[in-house]
C-alpha cells in the first residue's frame, strides 16, 4: 500500500473507502451471529413451548409471556417456584458477583503493581509462582476445596464464594502484562520525588492509568461469577432457596426433565441475561472511550 504522498488524493480515498466498506460488512455479519442468540432467547421467552418445538427460533415475539411467567413463579401454576425466584436470584448473584469482582480486581491490581514496581528478593519467585498456579486445572483443586470447606464449616455461606477471589492468578497475570506494555515506571519515581507515599501513589496515580485494564477484567469477572454454576452448587450444599444464585436457579429450570417447558426455560435464561447485558453496556463505556489518559507526556 503506497503512502498518501505518492498517490492522487481521490484514488487514495477510494482505496480507504473500499477497505472500510469491506471491514464494515464483515463486522456486521459477525454482529449478527453474536446478537442473534440473545434476541432468540428473549423472544423465545415469550412463546409457548409447543410453538418452540414446532418452530425452533423466531425473531418475533410470541404472546405467551404472561403464561410463561406465571408458570415460572406462581406455585399454583408451575412446579418451579420451589427452586426459582427472580428477586432472590438477582439479589444473591449481584451480591456475590459484585463482591468477588471488586476484591479480585482490586487485589490483583495491588499484587501486579507490587510485582512490577518494586524490587525485592522473592520477586521472581513470586511471579513464577503465580504463573504456575495459573496452570493448575480447576478440577485439581475443586474437590479438595469442597472438603476443606466442609471441614471448617464454611458451607452454605457466601464466604468461600467471595474470599478466594482475592487471589485470582489470571487477573494478576493480565495486569502484569498490561503494566509491562503500558505502564510508565517513571511515574512512580516522579511521584516519590513529589513526596507522595507509596499507597497514595498507587491509588491516585496508578489506578487511573490502569482503568481500562480494570474495566476489562471487571466485566469478565462479573460475568464469570454471575454464570458460575459449579462452585456455588457445591458450596451451597443445602440448596436453600434464599441462598441460591441465578445460575443455580436456571440450571434447575432447564435440567428439570419432568416439566420440559421450553418457553419457561428461555424466559428463565432471559431473565438472567438481561441484567448482565445492562451492566455490561454501562461498563463498556470505559473501554470504548479508553484512551490512555495518564500517559507520561513530554
Amino acid at each position: 500500500m503506497a503512502d498518501s504522498y505518492n498517490q492522487s488524493s481521490s484514488a487514495y480515498k477510494r482505496m480507504i473507502m473500499t477497505h472500510s466498506i469491506i471491514r464494515f460488512i464483515v463486522c456486521v455479519l459477525l454482529s449478527v451471529i453474536c446478537l442473534l442468540p440473545i434476541i432468540i432467547i428473549l423472544m423465545n421467552g415469550t412463546r409457548s413451548s409447543a410453538s418452540i418445538i414446532a418452530n425452533g427460533f423466531s425473531i418475533v415475539p410470541g404472546n405467551a409471556l404472561s403464561d410463561n411467567w406465571a408458570k415460572l413463579t406462581d406455585p399454583d401454576k408451575g412446579p418451579f417456584s420451589a427452586v426459582y425466584n427472580v428477586w432472590l436470584g438477582y439479589r444473591n448473584s449481584l451480591f456475590i458477583s459484585l463482591a468477588a469482582t471488586g476484591v479480585a480486581v482490586l487485589f490483583s491490581g495491588l499484587t501486579a503493581y507490587g510485582l512490577t514496581v518494586y524490587h525485592f528478593k522473592l520477586r521472581n519467585f513470586a511471579t513464577t509462582f503465580i504463573l504456575a498456579v495459573l496452570m493448575i486445572p480447576t478440577q485439581v483443586v475443586s474437590a479438595g476445596f469442597l472438603d476443606f470447606m466442609i471441614k471448617i464449616g464454611w458451607v452454605d455461606n457466601y464466604l468461600p464464594l467471595i474470599l478466594p477471589a482475592i487471589a485470582s492468578p489470571s487477573t494478576v497475570f493480565f495486569m502484569l502484562q498490561y503494566m509491562r506494555s503500558s505502564f510508565p515506571l517513571d511515574i512512580v519515581e516522579a511521584a516519590r520525588i513529589d513526596g507522595s507515599g507509596e499507597v497514595r501513589t498507587f491509588v491516585q496515580i496508578a489506578l487511573p492509568i490502569l482503568k481500562p485494564a480494570f474495566a476489562v477484567q471487571a466485566i469478565f469477572m462479573f460475568v464469570g461469577n454471575w454464570n458460575n454454576y459449579y462452585t456455588p452448587s457445591i458450596i451451597l450444599l443445602s440448596n436453600k432457596l434464599e441462598q441460591r444464585t441465578m445460575s443455580m436457579m436456571i440450571q434447575s429450570v432447564v435440567a428439570n426433565d419432568k416439566n420440559i417447558d421450553y418457553g419457561v426455560q428461555y424466559l428463565a435464561i432471559g431473565m438472567s441475561v438481561l441484567p448482565v447485558i445492562i451492566i455490561y453496556l454501562i461498563l463498556s463505556k470505559f473501554i470504548v472511550k479508553g484512551i490512555a489518559l495518564g500517559a507520561v507526556k513530554g
Binding site: N239, S252, A255, N256, D257
Partner: peptide, 8 residues
C-alpha cells in the same frame, strides 16, 4: 428438602 433437579 429439595435436592436435585431430576432423578438422575
Amino acid at each position: 428438602v429439595k435436592q436435585g433437579d431430576s432423578g438422575g
